[in-house]
Design a protein around this nucleic acid. Structure first.
Lengths: 172, 172
DNA sequence: CTCGCGCGTTCACGGAGGCGAAACAACCAC
DNA sequence: GTGGTTGTTTCGCCTCCGTGAACGCGCGAG
């Protein structure tokens, strides 16, 4: 994963945003200035002036941590509609391909039904229920790859690995 | 926890041992020498010569990480109603999401029933019993994540890490 | 101690709405 | 034609959320 370089002081807002988004980052601190300290393992800092090799070293460590943090690779989707994951592959028809693009772009995060509708049917949504049906079809196609689309009620859908969704508490 | 200072090169064996024992450590690297790199979050290094304050800063961060490694981190609630903790997640419906925002904001501290009511129903509380019922539902939803809402009688509620799952697992 | 009360917990119920999925029909590529 | 893709309808389950009621428990009064 890419490591961002942040100038300190001067990029406080950007640093805040990177922290919130869990993007690995190296803070560049000029002489005499106190570094912004955090226990976050995805953040490091270095005192300027520094030799390039030291900066590269810290960047490399941060990148390793970040890669190890998302404990699995995201599946790959090529422009011909082939989805590869876990050594297997399936081909996706046009609509499902467009849906998959945004689901992969926000892997393991929620994608709203609205965003999915816009991605799948840029010209406008044909019917109300179309999206649901295509989600069902996508689910069936993705299951053999060890991928699952979870429903987040009234919010959207989320793509992640594996079926084992064991216990969901039900309402009394 | 105490942070060990390691001279590099010269204390290779001691460094190996500290790594094996998971003791937080700061490696002191003289000019022109390549630092020993690792993704281990309990290890850091600094280029000599360095000002004392920089060394103290890195030692403090390492100590914080070591201390924080024991008790779990605070759970995260994203804007889509997804609550992540301990590698798992659950989705929260609108009302419970609003309640959770203030409980997380005052993590491990008491939140008054009044504050919870205002957070959950900004337009005004619909009924007298509603808050209690939603606390129950929130409790059930949080249990699988290892989170628990404690009652502080006549004061309010408090969110903290839950009982071990053994006590939660079964129910007739 | 025992009772009553305030406070909190939990269950059951039902309406409203989100979502799942089968079945069907039209269409397109080969 | 054959098989795959897409849109539509329809049915029904499940979730969400407010309401009412029963129950448990600590604490002060008697």
């Amino acid at each position: 994963m890419k490591v961002e370089l942040v100038e300190w002081p001067g990029e406080e807002e950007r640093l805040t945003q990177l922290r919130r988004d869990h993007v690995p980052r190296l803070v560049l601190v000029p002489e005499g200035m106190a570094p912004p300290l955090t226990a976050d393992v995805l953040e490091d800092w270095i005192r300027l002036p520094a030799v390039d090799e030291d900066i590269r070293s810290r960047v490399r460590v941060l990148a390793d941590r970040a890669d190890g943090a998302d404990d699995s690779r995201v599946p790959e989707l090529d422009e011909n509609g082939l989805l590869r994951s876990g050594g297997h592959w399936v081909s996706l028809p046009p609509v499902e391909h467009r849906l998959m693009v945004v689901l992969l772009d926000r892997y393991r995060a929620v994608v709203s039904r609205d965003a999915l509708a816009r991605a799948g049917w840029p010209e406008g949504i044909p019917g109300r229920n179309v999206l649901d049906v295509h989600i069902v079809r996508l689910r069936r196609r993705l299951a053999p790859l060890g991928l699952a689309i979870r429903t987040v009620r009234s919010r959207g859908y989320l793509l992640e690995e594996g079926p084992p969704l064991s216990a969901v508490a039900s309402d009394g």
